[in-house]
Design a protein around this nucleic acid. Structure first.
Lengths: 221, 221
DNA sequence: GTTGTATCTTAACGATTATCAGAATCTGAT
DNA sequence: ATCAGATTCTGATAATCGTTAAGATACAAC
C-alpha cells in the first residue's frame, strides 16, 4: 500500500503508484501480453523513459502489479473463508475463492501464475503470497491432532488442487462464462474436501497391504 | 510429423520443421520469454521474414512447438504409466510423470501451460493434449463400477492435482534441483492416490449429515 | 520450355525496451 | 531565502522485434 503524501508530489504526482494503476487497467483490458511499458507511459502523459526512475525494468513493474494482485486476492478469499469455522469447510471455501478469483480476474491471475514473471527473481511477490499459504497452513494444522501424518503433504495438495482447477478453467476445459467459473469452483471445493477426508486413508489403508509411508509403491504390475 | 522429401527441398530445405527445432532449442536455452522469431531465423541463416511463408505469425510457431511438447510428453509418461496395471497406480504414475516432465523440461512445459500461448485460439494444441486426458479418462473409468459417482469430478481433480504440483515445483516451493523434482513428483502421486481413495467418501460420508451431491454445503458456520 | 506456385530476400514501417545526458523540480539544511 | 544535492522527468538515441510488401529464385507440372 503506497502512502499518499509520503512519497511526495513531483512533476507528475505519484507516478509510481499511477503506473501500477494504469498497468493493472491495461492488463485487465488487453491481458498480460498486450501490456507495454510504453503505452502505460502514454496514458499517463509522460515520456516513455519516465518509468525507469521508479522501476528498474518492465519486469519490476509487473512484479508490483503481482503484489497488488495478491492483496486483492486476499481481500476476496479471506471474507469468504471466514464465513466458515470448521477447517475443512474453510479450505473448501478457499479453493472456491481461488478458482473464482482466477475466473473473474483472469489477467491479474495470469500475472501471478503465468510465465510473464519469474517469481524466483522477485521475492517480494512470494512474500505477498504468504497470507494465502499461511491460511492454508493454519487450516490444515487445525484439522486434526493426528501427529503421525505430516501436514505439509496436505497443504501442498490443497494448494495444488485449487491452482490446478483454476488452470483448467482458464484453459477453457469447463467452457466459458460465469457458469463455468462457478462449476470449476464447485469442483475444486469438492476435490479439496476429498483430499481432507482421505487424509488418514493413505497412511491407514482400509484393506489389503495398501500404501506405505514415504514411498508410494502401490499396485506394481 | 513432417515428412522429409515430401515437402521438397527449396532454398533452405525443410524450413518449417527446422524452425520448430531451433525454436525448441532457443526456448530450452533462454526460456519462452527469450525466444524471438528473429533470432531463430538468424540461427538458420535465413531472412527474418522467411518464417512467414510457413507460419502466420509468431504464435503459430509457438503452437507448433506446443504440439511437439505434447508428443514428447506422451512418449515420457506413457511408458511410465504402462509399468502398472491397476488404474489407481497408473494414475499415480501419471502424476509422477507429469511433475517430472515439468521439472526436467521446464521451458517446454511453460510453452504448454504458461501465458505465452492462448490455447483457446489454437485448437491444434488442445487436440495434441488429448492422449493425455484420454489416459486419465480411461484409468478413472476403469477404477470402479460405482455408477453413482460421476467420473468427471475425479478426472479433473487428478489433472488439477498433477498440474498444481508441477506449478508449485516450478515456482520453487519445493526448492531447486533434481531432488525437488522427485520430491514434488512423489507428493503428486500421493495426493492422486488420496483422491482416488476418497472417491466414495464424498458421496457416502461416514458420519453426520455429510456432504450432498451437486452442491457442497459442508460445515456451515 | 513455359507457366504457375511455393519459397526466400531485400527493404521498410511502427512499436517496444532500455540508456544517457541534461533540464526541471523538490528536499533539507543553512 | 537561498543554496546544494538528490529525485524525477524530457528528449534523443540505439537495438531489437514483429510484420508487411514487392520482387527474385527455385521447384513441379504440363
Amino acid at each position: 500500500m503506497p502512502v499518499p503524501g509520503k512519497g511526495g508530489r513531483y512533476h507528475h504526482g505519484d507516478l509510481r503508484t499511477a503506473l501500477i494503476g494504469t498497468a493493472i487497467e491495461l492488463i485487465a483490458e488487453r491481458g498480460v501480453r498486450g501490456f507495454s511499458l510504453a503505452e502505460a507511459s502514454r496514458r499517463l502523459g509522460v515520456a516513455a523513459s519516465a518509468p525507469y526512475a521508479h522501476f528498474a525494468d518492465r519486469d519490476e513493474l509487473l512484479a508490483a502489479v503481482a503484489v497488488h494482485a495478491c492483496e486483492l486476492f486476499a481481500t476476496q478469499f479471506l471474507p469468504e473463508m471466514n464465513q466458515f469455522q470448521a477447517p475443512a469447510a474453510r479450505l473448501a471455501a478457499l479453493a472456491r475463492s481461488y478458482v473464482r478469483f482466477a475466473g473473474t480476474n483472469r489477467p491479474l491471475f495470469e500475472v501471478l501464475f503465468g510465465t510473464a514473471l519469474d517469481k524466483r527473481r522477485h521475492p517480494e511477490v512470494k512474500a505477498a503470497e504468504k497470507p494465502l499459504t499461511d491460511a492454508v497452513t493454519q487450516c490444515v494444522g487445525a484439522l486434526s491432532t493426528d501427529g503421525e501424518t505430516p501436514p505439509e503433504d496436505l497443504e501442498t495438495a490443497v494448494e495444488a488442487t485449487a491452482h490446478g482447477h483454476a488452470m483448467l478453467l482458464l484453459d477453457g476445459d469447463f467452457g466459458e462464462g460465469s457458469d463455468a467459473v462457478e462449476f470449476a469452483a464447485e469442483r475444486a471445493a469438492r476435490a479439496t474436501l476429498a483430499l481432507v477426508a482421505s487424509r488418514h486413508l493413505l497412511h491407514r489403508p482400509a484393506g489389503g497391504r495398501g500404501i506405505q509411508r514415504g514411498t508410494v509403491r502401490a499396485y506394481p504390475s
